[in-house]
Design a protein around this nucleic acid. Sequence first.
DNA 1: AGGAAAATGGAATATAAGTTCCATCACGAT
DNA 2: ATCGTGATGGAACTTATATTCCATTTTCCT
Lengths: 282, 282
Amino acid sequence: MTEALTDSPPQAFNELRDLIIERRDKLPRRLAQVAAYTIEFPDDIAFGTVGSISERAAVQPSTLVRFAKALGYSGFSELQAVFQERLRDRPNNYEARLQSLDEHTSGHSPAMAAIEGFSEAAIRSIERVKERVKPEDLDEAARILAAAETVYLIGLRRSYPVTAYLHYALGTLGIRTVLAGSPSGVDREILAFAGPRDAALAVSFTPYAPTTVEYTRQIVAQNTPLVSITDSPFSPLALNTSVWFEIVESDFEGFRTLAATMTLAAALAIAVAEKRRAGGRR
Amino acid sequence: MTEALTDSPPQAFNELRDLIIERRDKLPRRLAQVAAYTIEFPDDIAFGTVGSISERAAVQPSTLVRFAKALGYSGFSELQAVFQERLRDRPNNYEARLQSLDEHTSGHSPAMAAIEGFSEAAIRSIERVKERVKPEDLDEAARILAAAETVYLIGLRRSYPVTAYLHYALGTLGIRTVLAGSPSGVDREILAFAGPRDAALAVSFTPYAPTTVEYTRQIVAQNTPLVSITDSPFSPLALNTSVWFEIVESDFEGFRTLAATMTLAAALAIAVAEKRRAGGRR
DNA sequence: AGGAAAATGGAATATAAGTTCCATCACGAT
DNA sequence: ATCGTGATGGAACTTATATTCCATTTTCCT
């Protein structure tokens, strides 16, 4: 059996990469060839099979196993896992930024760790909004809300701050809104006033408050156009809705911020205001 | 054999995603369950094996194959390939990513410009929080709030969503809160109950709502410790306050999001909860 | 040049993976 | 209530994958 390393092989891709580069010229010919291939086509290592990779790298399958063992892994699969980790859970864009965040985090007070953790989660979430929200949807939502005489805002529990914000934001922009979910408790009666010439905006995340779902049903039944913000295509709000947005807030220690949702809400408010200005008064 | 589709199944991830979402509610129970899992954990589909995925998705291995076939693929492996493509050949280096981001930005609809603009503003604001907030301040604020019998939350207008969020967040963490600023209009009387063994948290930004300023004066006069979140050292809230945080939300076209404030609020909530847990009950 | 040690290619093997099949179950129509 | 269709769970089967083994070649030292 080939010699194994005394200490355990790297689990992080970057370390592994460094190790391969460092060892490269001490390795025998075929193994060096594999080393070069792994550095050049890391994605292929992550997804390929021993057979397919060996073919493309022009070596024998057994050579790949040897290579992994020479690096201290128990077999090729173990080495492959490291290459896969690199591609996993990568929230597309801000990886580098987040990584530097992680480095800062360690060694701080628990309070500061919370700040860093939530910042990281918030930035990720916002990034995702940018990627996922379709311009057409935003335009359509803005059109609906801009055309409404009154906008009914529906949001309970965690979603309530969002509707409260929109209540404020749309209010300052001269758009009449009615906020459901406040402690008044007469929401149903208020929502009964909504008609086809109004519009409603509902916000709800898992676990969806039954009341919110019920309200949206009522709204739809009254032929009032509905725009929703929710966290999954399978959310009850995503059905029967004129337009809906998917927002996935990353969590930190099981707790979620509202940063991304607030960002979308702000954009929506501005878009509505612009539509109103452009489309003339109604 | 199960029915196959007439036209070929999607090779691009986004199309596949849309297809799954569209078909979701027409699928039988177990297949719908798989559908939800694939949307929620696409990375797992890309890297897992039929065995491991079926275990985590709580279905039989055969169900995964059925799911793939129901979508028109020849088998699970073919569907998996689409999930892998999504992760392959993604540019790693930071600059390239940012560049592609910029390219997306320009030439989009005004609606999308709003999303991009607010996202940028929000991320910048959050990063500033990270830099500016002092760990000692956060610790001290958490200590004050954790020691309080009741936490009084003061926030009007744009700040109201923040206190509403804290009302919810602290509530779920088992901390008694009273929310001022809601439409009830009896805030002053409610705040009169606050004493030295309680604490208050006030949030206010320019232009500072006179009512908020007045409330904080009242609170301080009653010897209730006060934590503030505001946007300038010269804010009326920064004076006479036990601890205060400076949050500057970047604006986009004169409009401000609450992303950074929400992030700080979340961190504060967690920090308080941890202090409570660590420090025993009072 | 001769020999030992290491490296290599390729076949053999054991393991794991994906797929198929069938008995059973749930549900809707008659 | 009964029948029939479709869905489901789980075992059986087939394929392919990673790993091991060994004969052969290469390398390097004396």
